[in-house]
Amino acid sequence: MTRSPLVLIGKIWLALILVFLYAPILVMAAMSFNASPFYQLPFQFSTDWYAKMAGNQQIIAAAIRSVLIACATTAIATVLGTAASVALFRYDFPGKRILQVLLFPPIAIPWLITGTAMLVFFFAIGIGRGTPAVLIGHVALALPYVIVTVSARLSSFDVTLEEAARSMGANAWTVLSRVTLPWIAPGIVAGALFAFAVSFDQFVVSYFLSEPGDSTLPVLIYTAIRKGFTPEINAISTIIVTVSMAVMFLAARFSKFGGSR
């Protein structure tokens, strides 16, 4: 009986947190279907802003570019991050602990500082601004997330499974593909999702490294807001949120994050 008030307070507190997190998103989604460009009430349902967004070639081009860069970043960061995680798990070498510690500063350092440093560095080595610089910058930011996520999954891996496979004549590639990778697959999927999200949502590094007139979607949205906000931005933002949540739900459903009952 004494726990009932605490349970009720906990539920109310959780509900308030969810409202705080999702209320702005729900309002944005609702306003993307409002006929008024000035958010006037009463609400009048309309899909005009989605039709205008579909006809805006600048938004479509930026969205396609963001998706392509995010997919490339995901592929590169996932492969490199998984390989690095397996190497850090299997082998001991001088400076290993220092290397593991150095994985966290890119996550903790403000992206404004990181973007400025990358811009100076790329101009110093002759790369400059453009798609290659943006891709390298996104991979550098996404890589620590993949390594940390896959390494967390590897921490619960039983090495005796690999030893048993070797004792039965399996070579190194067979052990990796048949024993290790299936076990860490949920971690790889989670790391890939993190990499895609970091790249697709990245604004600061993209803003610093993109060439004028060839922006990613976050940079285009920022530029559009500065020039004059229109509900077309609400429409594209609603689509992005919906697709992102659907991908996360499917990944959680089929990868069985957190185990199964």
Rank of each mutant, 00 (worst) to 15 (best):
residue 165 A to P: 09
residue 161 L to W: 11
residue 20 F to S: 11
residue 94 P to V: 09
residue 183 W to E: 12
residue 203 F to M: 04
residue 172 A to E: 14
residue 163 E to N: 12
residue 241 V to R: 00
residue 206 S to R: 04
residue 210 S to D: 00
residue 235 A to S: 08
residue 178 R to F: 05
residue 169 G to F: 02
residue 106 P to Q: 06
residue 235 A to G: 07
residue 137 G to Y: 01
residue 26 L to Q: 03
residue 238 T to K: 01
residue 169 G to S: 00
residue 8 L to V: 11
residue 197 A to R: 14
residue 138 H to R: 03
residue 78 T to F: 10
residue 147 I to W: 07
residue 148 V to Y: 14
residue 7 V to I: 15
residue 40 Q to I: 08
residue 227 K to A: 10
residue 204 V to Q: 08
residue 49 W to R: 08
residue 2 T to P: 11
residue 35 A to G: 09
residue 197 A to L: 13
residue 80 L to W: 01
residue 49 W to M: 10
residue 196 F to G: 06
residue 212 P to E: 07
residue 9 I to A: 13
residue 8 L to S: 07
residue 118 M to A: 08
residue 243 V to R: 01
residue 114 T to W: 07
residue 184 I to N: 03
residue 58 Q to A: 12
residue 239 I to T: 00
residue 12 I to R: 06
residue 120 V to M: 11
residue 120 V to L: 12
residue 44 Q to A: 13
residue 103 L to Y: 05
residue 5 P to C: 03
residue 223 T to V: 06
residue 67 V to H: 01
residue 108 A to P: 02
residue 142 A to M: 09
residue 181 L to S: 06
residue 127 I to C: 00
residue 249 F to S: 13
residue 20 F to P: 07
residue 162 E to V: 00
residue 181 L to T: 09
residue 239 I to M: 04
residue 136 I to N: 06
residue 185 A to L: 14
residue 214 D to P: 02
residue 87 A to L: 10
residue 84 A to F: 10
residue 197 A to W: 12
residue 176 L to S: 11
residue 193 L to C: 13
residue 217 L to N: 04
residue 17 I to R: 03
residue 87 A to I: 12
residue 67 V to N: 03
residue 190 A to V: 06
residue 242 T to I: 13
residue 257 F to C: 08
residue 144 P to Y: 05
residue 137 G to I: 02
residue 249 F to Y: 15
residue 68 L to I: 12
